[in-house]
Design a protein around this nucleic acid. Structure first.
Lengths: 345, 345
DNA sequence: TCTCGCTATGATAACGTTATCATGACTGGC
DNA sequence: GCCAGTCATGATAACGTTATCATAGCGAGA
């Protein structure tokens, strides 16, 4: 008796102790496929059979292997999320909205951050694509052409957020950062301010706000008194204080400062208070983001409201609808820009 | 000629346009397995073959299907993360640390939140387990016995964080919330405070801080002037102000308030300032978390430092080491409790 | 020259599930 | 009592990859 040519994977006990469908089926005295059905479409299985299967599942602690499931069904139940950084609560608020919206449909979030780097973004998208996600949500607009091509070639719904564009990869849910800058400039000018400063970060969204702000000033025949930029990302309250300190020494002294984020603006208010500068009488201070701290602060912060959570929530809903087969005509959802007038400006 | 019995899945062109190993192999004029090898162990393949394969991969935009990979290799490259809520930046800081630590090893984060519910936690863990993660990180200690059994039965490394226990499921990286409460009580008493208030949330961690705080007061022969609880989760600055307002009306007026989170404490300081209460002369105020705002505030907030990011980072390192085959003897990493004395207490 | 070992590549089976088609039992209408 | 339709279950193949073993070719050492 020859052993013959033994090729391929050898047969041996599974090293994994996790039970599979076969184990459940054996215990329930039925076939693999019936177990699968009992779990996915319970009404297709006779109650008694179902009961035996449920009991076997319980007894064995069976948990379906979703890797096998997604391989054959071509549905992974995964939504991939790309965030610039997990270190900034305004982005994790969007993540929170996504999580809430996605969990309802029984899907899960695969999350990665890019650190604002285009190269890292492309690498991350590639890595996430390997999981064959059912949908993709991105905080920000994807600029890199290769990344855009990659994303649209994946054949799954994609939602960009936190910004606005005429030409989304698929869907966009956000607001125009440029419009936010414009709106705040108009607001401050309307309130009689004339020597306006801009403070922001170096990221694209902040730059867009600055552009809108400057444009309105120019239209009004005013010059931007100065613009300050921080390389910190995410920005900090302390940095807001430092920048405000520098601004307070300008001659002539500005009468309004628009901080591109509430975090910086709160720092600005704290510093003014420390320096004995009356806000808003001497200097108006405004921010962007509508963080809760701005509401509690004295004086309460005037700001541009950004529906971080809602954007995530809405993005999740759009993905869910698309995955349910809907063919949404509305590709662009613009939350618009809403200034919350409080005490600081 | 009979058609015969056609059973099983019909043969038809893949509906999925994503190229697979076979497509790449055909284009590169080699076999599937050699392509697989070229991608995973490039040095095992002759440079010329590798070049042809690389070119084919590029041309086709091939991205390996990780579902198939994890199915057969029994390595998913996924780290599952369980968070009470994504709405609280102190937890997302831990998530950030996890992300940074995990990305280095080429793994990805599958994230879910429980909303502080044990039932939701169990459901989440079950759902995540379906992906066969290589490791699991949890913010918090898992109390539910079924969940603990489930987790330890998975056969993968588990790290609990943000708390301390003698009996972790596998590893714990955190600090003792009770010790934090104790330390702050001692600190305040040492500074001559005698009428001490506690303010916190209704979650387990906050309750542990309260227990430690009360214990020290009792040992010192002092009574807790009062304890206040909020049901908000995450707590808010505004809630801190409201609670402080109520505290300010107590008779006799307390001389120290320990807020169980910095967010509440910052609200407390704002409210005191508004009420004309001198902090820390009349009332000392302390928090927990060491948020950046506490440093920028005036008076700067005395607080218990919590290394949120570092806990995540460390948890990721432990998981990586375990997955690299290390058998770590140190199951318990206690970051300890460190009070940052600033101006407010 | 022969053998040993190494390098490069390949053939096959297996991972755990679901899609598709098949089939036997049963039901209702005539 | 017959037939079409429904219900419950099953058999098989396929998803795309990797683990394992096999093998041809080649150079080195005996």
């Amino acid at each position: 008796m020859t052993k013959g040519k033994r090729r391929g994977r050898p047969i041996r006990p599974r090293p994994d102790n996790a039970p599979n469908l076969e184990d459940v089926a054996r215990r329930a005295g039925t076939s693999i496929i019936t177990v699968s059905r009992a779990l996915r479409q319970p009404d297709k299985v006779r109650p008694e059979t179902r009961a035996r299967i449920t009991a076997a599942v319980e007894a064995l602690g069976y948990i379906p292997n979703l890797a096998a499931s997604s391989l054959v069904s071509r549905r992974s139940g995964i939504i991939a999320v790309v965030v610039p950084t997990l270190g900034n609560s305004i982005f994790t608020d969007t993540l929170h909205g996504l999580s809430d919206g996605v969990t309802a449909a029984g899907r899960q979030l695969l999350v990665g951050d890019t650190g604002y780097s285009e190269a890292a973004e492309h690498a991350l998208i590639t890595a996430l694509a390997g999981r064959r996600p059912d949908g993709i949500a991105i905080v920000g607009i994807v600029r890199n052409l290769r990344s855009r091509t990659l994303l649209s070639g994946l054949g799954v719904p994609v939602v960009e957020t936190w910004d606005m564009t005429d030409d989304p990869i698929d869907h966009v849910v956000g607001f125009s950062n440029e419009a936010a800058g414009r709106a705040m400039a108009r607001y401050l000018i309307d309130r009689g301010r004339r020597r306006l400063v801009f403070v922001g970060g170096n990221d694209l969204r902040s730059r867009a706000r600055e552009a809108g702000y400057r444009a309105v000033l120019q239209e009004a025949g005013l010059a931007t008194a100065a613009a300050f930029f921080t390389d910190q990302s995410p920005s900090s309250f302390g940095e807001g204080r430092r920048l405000m300190h520098r601004i307070s020494t300008l001659e002539p002294r500005p009468d309004a400062v628009f901080f591109s984020t509430d975090v910086l603006a709160v720092g600005g208010i704290i510093e003014c208070r420390q320096l004995g500068i009356d806000v808003p009488r001497e200097i108006a201070i405004a921010g962007l983001g509508d963080l809760e701290i701005g509401r509690a602060l004295v004086p309460a912060l005037t700001t541009v409201q950004i529906p971080s959570y809602q954007m995530g929530r809405r993005a999740a809903e759009i993905l869910s609808q698309r995955l349910a087969g809907a063919d949404l005509a509305e590709k662009i959802v613009d939350f618009g820009v809403n200034i919350v007038a409080r005490d600081s400006a």
